[in-house]
Amino acid sequence: MLKTAIYVDAENIKMSGGYGMRYDVLVDLANSMHSVMVRANCYLAEDLERTKADPEYRQKVHAYHNILRNCGFKIIKKYVRRFKDEDGNITTKANADMDLAIDALLQARNLDRIILLTGDGDFLRLIVALQNTGCRVEVIGFHNVNKELREVADSYISGFLIPGLLPIAGAQGEQADQWQRGTVINFNQDRGFGFFRYYRLDNNVLQSETVFFHLSKSTLTSDHYFQEPYRIFEFRVVENPANNNRSEAWDIRFMKEA
């Protein structure tokens, strides 16, 4: 069994499209049939002055922290500090990067696999150092992920593509389980069809799947969206009764650049 740890750069994730992320899904990824989670750390900022003065903010912060703890995460807080320049302008700072890096390096001696959630290129050197201890480092990010960070990691996947990690807007009711996010792996522009790659969780292990799509099932007005492999789409996977119940992607909509 691989001893696995999760380290979440919560402020970066929140500001980069991961707000509302399901932490229990991360725990499931760490507790797969081949690995077991031995540590989960979440590094976040808290405005202590606001916590004391604003009851609504305090309630939201405490509720958020309780969710993390219930999922098995240890919370490492960095309190917001305020600085005033010569012109009287106030800036705030609460950076937990150093805390995350030191903890990961110290704890790596007892780990085999690390799941790091961030898009911050400042962690490039940390990833290499962790790999040099023998750890496998898997990076999950959302928007604005540093290109070199993707390349240096042992694996990188967009958090948008992990089933259930970030709920799909409007995916409710009986059709909720049909909705997926994926990327184009092949597109025939002349004939207007192609294939998406998406993922399913099987025994908490990400399994790659492919599904056929046709432009007639898209909400988009142009086929140029499908000519780039780094774009993420949302769609329903359905069995088409007019095509021998073959699985197809319907209601295709563009989400973002991967």
Rank of each mutant, 00 (worst) to 15 (best):
M1A: 08
E11N: 09
E11I: 08
N12I: 03
N12S: 01
K14M: 14
S16E: 02
G18A: 04
G20T: 09
G20Q: 05
M21C: 08
Y23N: 08
V27I: 14
N31E: 05
N31Q: 00
N31G: 02
R39Q: 13
N41L: 10
A45T: 13
D47T: 03
P55R: 03
A63N: 12
H65V: 11
I67A: 11
R69P: 02
R69N: 11
N70E: 13
C71K: 12
I76C: 12
I76M: 11
K77M: 12
K77W: 13
K78P: 03
V80W: 11
V80K: 10
R82D: 04
E86R: 13
D87M: 10
G88F: 09
N89V: 11
T92G: 14
A94E: 08
N95Q: 02
D99K: 14
I102L: 15
A104H: 04
L105W: 02
L106R: 14
A108S: 15
N110Y: 14
N110S: 15
N110V: 13
L111D: 08
L116P: 01
L116K: 07
L117D: 04
T118C: 04
D120S: 07
D122I: 01
D122V: 00
F123S: 10
I127C: 13
L130P: 06
Q131T: 01
Q131C: 07
N132P: 06
G141T: 07
F142S: 00
F142I: 07
N144T: 06
E148H: 14
V152Y: 03
A153W: 05
S155G: 03
S155R: 10
S155N: 13
Y156T: 04
Y156E: 09
I157P: 00
S158H: 04
G159N: 01
I162E: 02
I162P: 02
L165R: 02
L166M: 02
A169V: 09
A171L: 11
G173P: 08
A176G: 04
D177V: 09
W179E: 00
V184I: 03
V184H: 00
F187N: 03
G192Y: 05
G192R: 04
F196Q: 00
R197M: 08
Y198R: 00
Y198H: 01
N203R: 07
S216M: 08
K217L: 06
T219S: 15
T221K: 15
R231N: 12
R231C: 01
R231A: 01
F233Y: 11
F233S: 02
E234R: 12
E234F: 07
F235T: 05
E239K: 11
N243R: 11
N244C: 06
R246A: 12
A249P: 10
W250I: 09
I252K: 00
K256L: 13
A258L: 13
